[in-house]
Nucleic acid binder design. Structure first.
Length: 571
RNA sequence: GGGGGCAUAGCUCAAUGGUAGAGCAUCGGACUCUUAAUCCGCAGGCUGAAGGUUCGAGUCCUUCUGCCCUCACCA
C-alpha cells in the first residue's frame, strides 16, 4: 500500500517519476483553485461525432485557405448561437501564449478545442489551462466555429479537467509500436490508436451480427457450464481446477458441445452459445489458451444445411463488417461470396497434397502409414494410430520403428510388420478406420495450409470424428465438414451422432486410444449416452472460431490482435 | 520444448570494444488560427537481470527473464 502513495511509486530519479510528480502537483493546484481533478459532477452532453455531423454542411468555401481568410479580416465567428458541452481525452496541447489548441478524442471521434484568453472564462484560463496536459480527460462548453485552416472547433467558454492523468501518453507521432506493450497496456493502445479501437468495434459487430442472424432463425441463446467434471466435446488438453466445498476436481471446458446436445434432447431444437473455451496447449498466431467459440445445433438439419447457412452468415458479416465479400488478409485477396468450394479430404490430399494414389491411402493402412511418413508425419504418431484399437495391450515401440521408417526402401516392410503385430487390424472396418486416420494426418501435413480461399472440407474419416454421424454409404467416413480460410480452420460442423450404442463404442475407442498413449482424448460421458438413449432428434451442429473470423474480417495477422487481453507471462 | 531475432531516456530510435546521443514528450522562456505548431534554453540513463573476458563492455562470451518469428504441440 505505502509503495503506491504519491511520490513513492517509482524511484524518484527517473524521468517518468518526475513527470508524474509534476502532474500530481498540477492536480494539487487544481484542488487549491477549488476544482476537483477527479470530479464526477460534469460530463459531455453531445458526442464529438455528433457535433461534427451537425456542422459538416456549414464548412465555408474559404476554409482551408488561411491567406484568403486573413485578407478578408475575419474574426472568430460562431456558426450559430448554440452552446455545446463536449468531452474527451486531450490528445495534445499546442500553446500560443494567449491561445491554446487541444485536440479531443472520445468514443466517436476527434474534435478540437480552441482555448483563448478573450473567450474562455478568465478564471478557467488562469486556473485550468496551465494544469492541463495531454492525456487528461476534459470537458468544455462553447459554440462551434470554423478555424481559418478549416478545422471545426469548439470556442470554449468554460473548461473542466474531469480526470487528471498522471502518466504521459506515448510518442504522439510514432505511437506505441512495441507489440508487447500494446498487449500488456491495451488501455494505452486503445486510447491512442483509433485503428485498434476499430478492430475491436468490428469484432463486437461480428458477435452482435452472429446473434442477430441466429435469433432471426429461431435459435435460442443459452449458457452451459464452463466447469466440467469430465473432459468432453473435443480432443484437447484441459485446464484443471478444484472446487473446495465439494472437494471436487474440475476442468475448464474445452467445448460446450455435449451440454448443447443435451438441450436438443430436451426439446430446444435450435440452440447456440457464444462463449469462451479453454485449452491447455501451445500459443501461436492462431491459438490463444482461451478463445471464443460459437456453437450451434439445429434439429432436423444435416451438415449440408449448415454449410449453406455458414455461407449466408459469413456473407452477412462480411458485408456489415468489411464492406463486402471481397476482403484481403495479409495481402492475399479472399472472395467470401458463396458458394464456396466443397472438397473431400481424399481429394484435398490428391490435388493439394500431390498424392496420386490418395484413394489407396484411405483404404490400406500399410500404404497410408508409408505415405504419412513420407509426408513428414512423426513415426510416433503413425504407430499411435495403428496401435489405438488395441489400447494398453499394445507395446510402446514408436522409437523402435522410427529408425526403420527413416529409410524409404524399408518403409513398406516396417508398415506391414506393424500391421501384423496389431492383428486387430485384420478386421476390414478397423483397417479402413485406421487408414482414414492416417490419411487425415497426411492431409494435415500436405494440404491444410494450402486452403486459402474459403473451402468446405468434407468426408472426414470416422476415427478423427468421435461425435459425428457415420456416413450411410461408407461407414469409415462421417457426415462432417470443416471450413478453411487462409489455411486456418474457421468452423467445424457435422450431422450429429444420435445412435447411443454407436456413441458408446466411439467413447470406448477414445479410451483405448488414450490407453495406447494418445494425449488428447475425450472421457467416456455416461450421462451423455443416457441423454442419447432418451432420444435426440436428427441434428446438425457446428462450432466456429469467433477470434479467427475476426482475424479474417479485420485483416489482423495474429489472434492476439483480436483479443483485448491475450494471455501473457507476468511482467 | 527446439531454432532464430529483439531488449538503450516516458515514447520512437542512434552509438567500430574507447567519455551513452537525437527527435518527440516533460520543465523554463517567447508567441492570440495551430493541427507532428515554431523558436530559444535546462534537465532527464545502474544500456532487461546476474556473472565472465578485457587496461576498458551498450557492444564480445555464459546464464537467466520477457517479447516477437518459426517448428513442435494443437479439431
Amino acid at each position: 500500500m505505502s509503495s503506491r502513495l504519491p511520490g513513492h511509486s517509482d524511484p524518484p530519479e527517473t524521468t517518468l517519476a518526475r513527470i508524474m510528480d509534476e502532474r500530481r502537483a498540477k492536480a494539487r493546484a487544481l484542488r487549491t483553485a477549488g476544482s476537483d481533478p477527479y470530479r464526477n459532477d460534469i460530463g459531455p452532453a453531445i458526442s464529438l461525432a455528433e457535433v461534427r455531423a451537425r456542422y459538416q454542411a456549414t464548412r465555408p468555401a474559404s476554409a482551408g485557405d488561411p491567406a484568403a481568410a486573413r485578407d478578408k479580416g475575419e474574426g472568430i465567428a460562431p456558426i450559430d448561437g448554440e452552446v455545446h458541452r463536449v468531452g474527451g481525452r486531450a490528445m495534445g496541447k499546442r500553446g500560443f501564449g494567449k491561445t491554446v489548441f487541444v485536440p479531443l478524442r472520445d468514443t466517436t471521434g476527434d474534435l478540437q478545442l480552441y482555448l483563448n484568453v478573450d473567450h474562455l472564462d478568465p478564471g478557467d484560463f488562469a486556473a485550468i489551462v496551465p494544469q492541463l496536459d495531454a492525456g487528461d480527460l476534459v470537458v468544455a462548453e462553447g459554440p462551434a466555429f470554423w478555424t481559418r485552416r478549416g478545422e471545426l472547433s469548439i470556442l470554449a467558454k468554460r473548461l473542466w479537467i474531469t480526470t487528471k492523468a498522471l502518466r504521459p501518453l506515448p510518442d504522439k507521432w510514432h505511437g506505441m509500436t512495441d507489440v508487447e506493450l500494446r498487449y500488456r497496456q491495451r488501455y494505452v493502445d486503445l486510447a491512442i490508436s483509433p485503428e485498434v479501437r476499430e478492430v475491436f468495434r468490428r469484432r463486437s459487430q461480428i458477435v452482435t451480427g452472429i446473434r442477430r442472424f441466429l435469433d432471426a432463425r429461431g435459435f435460442l441463446e443459452v449458457e452451459t457450464p464452463m466447469l466440467h467434471p469430465i473432459i468432453s466435446g473435443a480432443a484437447a488438453r484441459p485446464f484443471q481446477t478444484h472446487h473446495n466445498a465439494l472437494d471436487m476436481d474440475l476442468y475448464l471446458r474445452i467445448a460446450p458441445e455435449l451440454y448443447l446436445k443435451r438441450l436438443v434432447v430436451g426439446g430446444f431444437e435450435r440452440v447456440y452459445e457464444v462463449n469462451r473455451n479453454f485449452r491447455n496447449e501451445g500459443l501461436s498466431r492462431k491459438h490463444n489458451p482461451e478463445f471464443t467459440m460459437l456453437e450451434l445445433y439445429q434439429a432436423y438439419a444435416t451438415y449440408t444445411d449448415l454449410m449453406a447457412m455458414t455461407e449466408e452468415l459469413f456473407g452477412e458479416l462480411a458485408r456489415e463488417v468489411s464492406g463486402g465479400t471481397r476482403v484481403a488478409w495479409e495481402g492475399v485477396a479472399l472472395d467470401l461470396a458463396p458458394p464456396w468450394r466443397r472438397l473431400s479430404v481424399r481429394d484435398a490430399v490428391r490435388e493439394l497434397g500431390g498424392v496420386a494414389e490418395a484413394s489407396r491411402i484411405f483404404e490400406d493402412p500399410a500404404f497410408a502409414a508409408e505415405a504419412a511418413i513420407a509426408a513428414g508425419v512423426p513415426a510416433a504418431d503413425v504407430v499411435g494410430v495403428l496401435r489405438a484399437p488395441l489400447g494398453d495391450q499394445a507395446g510402446h515401440d514408436a522409437e523402435a520403428v522410427k529408425a526403420g521408417f527413416k529409410d524409404p526402401a524399408q518403409r513398406p516392410g516396417v508398415a506391414r510388420a506393424l500391421l501384423e503385430r496389431y492383428s486387430d487390424l485384420a478386421d476390414p472396418e478397423a483397417r479402413r478406420i485406421a487408414a482414414g486416420h492416417l490419411g487425415y494426418l497426411v492431409f494435415e501435413a500436405t494440404a491444410e495450409a494450402k486452403l486459402v480461399q474459403p473451402t468446405f472440407l468434407t468426408e472426414f474419416p470416422l476415427a478423427v470424428s468421435p461425435l459425428a454421424r457415420r456416413n450411410d454409404r461408407d461407414g469409415a467416413f462421417c457426415d462432417r465438414f470443416e471450413l478453411f480460410i487462409s489455411g486456418k480452420e474457421i468452423a467445424n460442423g457435422f450431422s450429429e451422432l444420435n445412435d447411443p450404442d454407436d456413441q458408446r463404442s466411439r467413447f470406448l475407442a477414445q479410451a483405448r486410444a488414450r490407453a495406447a498413449g494418445a494425449a488428447e482424448t475425450m472421457d467416456f460421458d455416461e450421462d451423455y449416452c443416457r441423454a442419447l438413449e432418451v432420444g435426440m432428434p436428427p441434428t446438425a451442429g457446428e462450432g466456429m472460431g469467433v477470434d479467427r473470423i475476426a482475424m479474417v474480417l479485420t485483416d489482423q495477422p495474429s489472434i492476439r490482435d483480436v483479443i483485448l487481453f491475450p494471455l501473457m507471462r507476468p511482467e
